[in-house]
Design a protein around this nucleic acid. Structure first.
Lengths: 200, 200
DNA sequence: CGTTCGATGTATCGGCCCGATACATCGGGC
DNA sequence: GCCCGATGTATCGGGCCGATACATCGAACG
């Protein structure tokens, strides 16, 4: 999961670890708060040994007197990571992958979704529908619990189930909206933004 | 986290691994789908070596001719786990703990919440308020992203943020309701259940 | 009556990721 | 002149997951 996220960010611009973590946090903030350095650095080393990224500033000897890279604080003891050509291929390959790991975990789905702008439409649709299926299964499970085993559970457990069920129903509705948009060929919200009654 | 969950379930009744996993799945289904055996069995062994649980049916030589335990399929190659007196103390100790690990992760909060019926009111309140604080922080983070960096993000990333923000706002409202109930001394929903307009 | 198949049941292994921790350096405020 | 908070790199132990491997029981099907 981290692999895809890192390659995606380095695809936009070279960066060092600290900056990478911050970007990761804002871009994926909806699904996880912050990525741990205990995950980040080992993953960076793995990506490096796999040849997807390289260590060291890319235009160290700049062709023209430019810092095309908007100088992302490459000062001090920095180690700047740059994606390689193979890394870009790898990124595309991971982007198109739509296996169970893409639907099952919040994080997995979130990362893929965050890069939807660079994913081809067919894959987008497959991922959204796969995700919807999983969430629906989850929802059915909770409905069963609530209808069949309600009397055997205490009030708090029940309330937890209700809240979970509500969240699932909401996510399914969200996904259906997105799927409809995909089929129409419209991008998510920007056209239909700020319509008067979104919450009801 | 698993430790608390397992002790809590074994507190209700002795069980073997398979059954334990099923109960875990339904009781915590709102926050995680299923616990992996790769977590369950090692944890059971740890709990055993710590003395919180013992292996083997508890009323093997039943005092009176009873299966007080509602015969939870203790057939075949089963290994039935039973909580010890020390385990019960440990359970109470974990129940009262309300550190960061209790608020931060979905799973951590979910497990504690699932056993609220056996948690003392003061701890319940502390946990709910701690959780609310975390979710509010998360919410503020996403609001900042949406207001300050909106133009730098693509439509999909934006939509992800919006959805995340919505979920946070919803959870905060849910928590506030629960907190209000706690202060009134009312149990969650059962009194106010099936009021006509819950969703709006 | 035999076989197959799905539910029940126990267990391990490699790997991802997290939280805690340890440093070291820079810029600015007191 | 000194300290402190933001920046920055890095490791270690441990929890939990997904895949996998078995083995047994009951029922269905030929």
């Amino acid at each position: 999961m981290l692999e895809l996220a890192i390659l995606g960010l380095l695809h936009e611009s070279p960066m060092h670890g600290y900056e990478l973590r911050k970007q990761l946090t804002t871009k994926l903030g909806a699904f996880r708060f912050a990525i741990s350095y205990g995950s980040l650095y080992p993953t960076l080393r793995r990506l490096q040994s796999d040849g997807w990224i390289t260590e060291g500033a890319p235009p160290a000897n700049a062709p023209a007197g430019t810092d095309e890279v908007p100088l992302l604080t490459s000062k001090r003891g920095r180690v700047v990571y740059t994606i390689t050509a193979e890394g870009k291929e790898r990124f595309q390959e991971l982007l198109s992958a739509a296996g169970p790991e893409t639907y099952d975990s919040e994080a997995g789905f979130g990362v893929h979704f965050a890069f939807f702008a660079r994913t081809d439409p067919a894959t987008r649709l497959r991922i959204l529908e796969g995700r919807r299926r999983r969430v629906e299964e989850r929802r059915e499970g909770m409905r069963d619990v609530l209808s069949r085993a309600a009397e055997r559970l205490d009030a708090y457990t029940l309330e937890l189930q209700r809240h979970g069920l509500d969240a699932c129903e909401r996510e399914v509705r969200w996904l259906e909206e997105l799927i409809a948009n995909e089929r129409n060929g419209t991008t998510p919200q920007p056209p239909s933004a700020q319509d008067p009654e979104r919450s009801s």
